[in-house]
Amino acid sequence: MKKKNTAEIKPVTVNELKKEMLSLPHAELVEICLRLAKFRKENKELLSYLLFDASYPETYLDQVKAYIDAEFDGMGTTQAYLAKKTVRKILRVTNKHIRFTQSKTVEVELLLYFCKRLRRAGDLLRQSVQLGNLYAQQLRKIDKLIDAQHEDLQYDYRRQLEQLVKV
């Protein structure tokens, strides 16, 4: 029996990457960023966010909410399986945009908005155990995130959360 080669090429630490990037000339750094953008779609989306949208978080938040609206509006509720797939896709994309922003406030805003839209699906939410569990999981996540917010924001977010809990 042949032994498998288990040796892996391990990536360097973020700190080592930072040191190396600081030593590179500007033009070479730009080339590396462009190469990363060509390599994966998510890298390109993150780079687009950082260059064009990071300075305008409210506008970006509105764009993500518009995406959520469009996806929920286009979702058919006649077939539960397809509706569940669509809801999971919307949540996956929403979480990706949350990761881009790295803002707990934006995370609370987007998850609250996602849950409001999911709650409007009413019958679908009551009929599907999986979607009910997903909804409850997101509410618990929002509850934990609210604790990390400023006191003024906590009050506003708690009121919105209480409305979502009343099903």
Rank of each mutant, 00 (worst) to 15 (best):
K144Y: 13
D147S: 13
L34H: 12
L50Y: 14
H150P: 07
K116Y: 08
Y157F: 06
H150N: 05
Y157M: 03
Y155S: 11
I90L: 06
R120N: 13
Y113K: 09
V129M: 11
L118S: 11
L124R: 00
C33L: 15
Y157P: 04
I146D: 03
I68E: 06
V87G: 05
A66L: 13
R158Y: 11
Q154Y: 05
T94R: 01
K38I: 00
L118T: 01
V30T: 08
L111H: 00
R40F: 15
A83E: 04
A83S: 04
E71S: 04
V64N: 09
D62E: 15
Y60R: 04
L131G: 05
G74F: 11
L112F: 04
L111T: 00
K144F: 13
S128Q: 00
D123G: 14
L36N: 08
V108I: 09
D62L: 12
L82F: 15
C33A: 15
L29R: 07
L124Y: 01
E151C: 13
L111D: 00
Y60V: 11
L153T: 07
V87I: 02
L110N: 06
Q163K: 10
Q160G: 02
R40C: 14
K116Q: 11
Y56W: 15
L47I: 07
A148T: 13
Q160M: 11
L112T: 00
K89F: 09
H150M: 14
A136M: 09
L110V: 05
T105S: 11
E42C: 14
R40H: 14
F114W: 05
G122T: 12
K96H: 03
G122E: 12
Q130I: 12
R99L: 15
Q149G: 05
D73G: 11
R88P: 08
F52P: 09
